[in-house]
Design a binder for these strands. Sequence first.
DNA 1: CTGAAAGCGCTAACAT
DNA 2: ATGTTAGCGCTTTCAG
Lengths: 348, 348
Amino acid sequence: MHKEITIYDIAKKLGISATTVSRGLNDNPLINKKTREKIHQTAKELGYRHNTIASNLRKRHSKTIGILLHEVNSYFVTAVLAGIEKVATAEQYDLLITHAGEDSIREIANTKNLLNKRVDGVIVSLTLSTRDIAHFNPFFERNIPVVFFDRVPGDANCSKVVIDNFKCGELATKHLIEQGCKKIAHITADLTRNVYNDRFEGYKKALEEHHIKFNKKLLQICNVSNKEETIAAVDKLLGQKPDAFFITNDFAAAVCIDVLHKKGLRVPEDIAVFGFNNDLIGDLITPRLSTIDYPGKQMGEVAAHELIKQLKSVDRHKKTSFKSIVIPSKMIIRESSLKKEKNKNPLE
Amino acid sequence: MHKEITIYDIAKKLGISATTVSRGLNDNPLINKKTREKIHQTAKELGYRHNTIASNLRKRHSKTIGILLHEVNSYFVTAVLAGIEKVATAEQYDLLITHAGEDSIREIANTKNLLNKRVDGVIVSLTLSTRDIAHFNPFFERNIPVVFFDRVPGDANCSKVVIDNFKCGELATKHLIEQGCKKIAHITADLTRNVYNDRFEGYKKALEEHHIKFNKKLLQICNVSNKEETIAAVDKLLGQKPDAFFITNDFAAAVCIDVLHKKGLRVPEDIAVFGFNNDLIGDLITPRLSTIDYPGKQMGEVAAHELIKQLKSVDRHKKTSFKSIVIPSKMIIRESSLKKEKNKNPLE
DNA sequence: CTGAAAGCGCTAACAT
DNA sequence: ATGTTAGCGCTTTCAG
């Protein structure tokens, strides 16, 4: 069995104290450059590896950021992760990533686990089934920074990074109306989650502004990441003879287009389709999907920056002020929604 | 500032020793049931949280598995992660996930970081640019289990979980030949990586068996996750007037079909297309993509099981025997490759 | 069934 | 510029 080398072994070999070795290894400028070099060298010779656990115990922090994800099945989430990782790595933080599979029970378990692991802060996107955020109280009580992104709690008392889902919902719907659509079906997910509710409210607002009465028969709630459920929702709505679908997720929108084609319906001529997320897939299907660009990587970067800012400023006494950061998003018009302007250049 | 509760606080309050509290908290059956209950209760009252760091330091392990990923941008990798997580969670292991962005330098840095973090074992998929695996020596030396999956080293001296890429490449190519294709172009990634090389060898084998001479002008190497590079590769190959494309990645295959459509070419009538991975996208594009089903989740589960098995059996003395586990994969024939059997039922 | 003592490996205070 | 001492919070002998 391999004998694990400690700073004491290095100290003994060099005839100096462990403290000096520790400092030398951490490149403390107080230590003589020559000593430092010698320390580094014998560390290498002896095959020393820093014990992060011991160091963390002593320093009473973990230099890691906990990530609580609702799920990791989308291009969006992957992009967010990449954004977080980029800034976290630059600031020397590790990431402890958990995901809850849209199950609030697992979210709570993950929260507890990260708490015990002594993460320095957490970045969170709530599951569909999460109703309240009491499980974050231990963090709040200890002044451990928490930054929510995308799927955030209604509560104002926390930091969040979001896009303007209301405006996006309104914009997309308005665009469809301007294309001549009058019976716009809406497929979305659980409305207790802010993102879906806000988009739905935006949808209703646009209808209202154009004097179209909201018809709740044109609304379907389902798991938009699930193909079968989406197909069922589309089928049901088709009974209402809609002339457009506004769907809260690109994958589901692609499934919808597929269903429509199978029924011999043309997109956008017979029925226009509008997605949400700007997933890679939207640009690869026929017709190309109009959607809302959701800047995942940027959200991740901003969330991580905000968290690290709080981490650095936590003077452990004054409460950090909470803020809500809105990331710009934009509408991307492609073929699937262009009923009128078939020959006009899409303004992508 | 929140005062952090330790087992000593609980011990003092209960007039017992910290040892007993520790045992009680860990549900050690030696401790009187009543004492145990009291301990748990006051722990709750006082808002105690277990200090995993201290515990890990003392126990000299971290109860976490390190994951080294080449990249996290595909449905496949996500599926593997889900598989690993499923079995790791069941066995009470945490995951420390890193990714290298296909950069071997970052892979090496991540390796070192995980080593210092005292992960109990690692599960790895190599980057495209990784040439040798010397950076895993510290793990081997310490008898810390390492399991590679999918993108594995050529070296036999390690545990790996793979699919039979050679056979898959052969099968796909053979299928295209049977559809009447004679000039089959192949787009793939860096051939120093086993998965791509094996598929390529399978491709050549199938050609040879059907007395078709391999033409290296029909081969293009590029980053198949990059749209622009893929388009360029397709364009170049089109100069050779191929009648089929065998592409090592579904995303790239979708891009290819898109390019072909834009040029007014029909798929599969003019040119057949065959992908690899069974990504979600393949079933959503027109025509539907023929591909190889790559059981990511299963690979993840198997890899995690194998690792945990080694973790449990590491009697720190005898070398663990290395094995190569091959996961079954299968061909999925859809429309994009069916030149002849247009009216036959696909055997999906 | 419970406790005393030691120590995991490191770093922060406080000297010198 | 370097050393001494103590302790982060837990678990593990060993002893009773």
